[in-house]
């Protein structure tokens, strides 16, 4: 399942004070350019990890793009999220090759080890499990990706081991 990308219970998530300095720079970069909605939202994703509501307010105020248009785009593409996620997003590839090589077992092992369901975030905010379509490393199937690192030829146990190593590092 994809990450919960739309806020369900809005009041539960505090909109922490958001620093707009970097966003303002992107606004200047793309001001007046044709087709700038996606690059703007992408740079906001890169800054905040998700799209806080204030981003939409700011873009509307600064550039006059309507919120409905931005919301339409943000909910269409899988890259955009409207809710914060864990520090480490564990992307489990469910492309054809990985599926044939039993990627489902990796998701199940992760769900058991992290005690969350696919698409959810752990209580400590460390991990989010996300199912993604092909990562393009089919010959290493089944694979997962954490940050920029790809781990291949896994089974359930090996996957849990990787998670435990990250947990250990986080404790240090």
């Amino acid at each position: 399942m994809r990450i919960q990308r739309i806020l369900q219970e809005k009041e539960l998530i505090e909109q922490k004070s958001v620093d707009l300095t970097d966003l303002k720079k992107s606004i200047e970069k793309y001001r007046g350019k044709k087709g700038n909605i996606i690059p703007l939202l992408q740079s906001a994703m890169a800054i905040y990890g998700y799209l806080p509501e204030i981003v939409f307010d700011t873009l509307e105020k600064e550039l006059g793009i309507s919120k409905s248009q931005m919301y339409g785009v943000a909910t269409f593409y899988s890259q955009f999220r409207l809710a914060p996620v864990g520090k480490h997003i564990v992307k489990v590839c469910h492309g054809t090759a990985c599926h044939v090589q039993n990627a489902t077992a990796l998701t199940e092992a992760l769900e058991e080890a992290l005690e969350i369901k696919d698409g959810e975030t752990t209580k400590d905010g460390l991990f989010t499990i996300e199912s993604v379509a092909c990562l393009g490393c089919c010959s290493l199937a089944p694979v997962i990706m954490i940050g920029d690192e790809v781990y291949g030829k896994l089974d359930g146990n090996a996957t849990v081991k990787i998670i435990n190593e990250i947990k250990l590092k986080e404790k240090e």
């Binding site: 090759a97 092909c134 393009g136």
Partner: peptide, 11 residues
């Protein structure tokens, strides 16, 4: 925009 799961020629 190579999106087919299981294909990586273009990449």
């Amino acid at each position: 925009d190579e999106g087919d799961p299981g294909a990586f020629m273009d990449r």
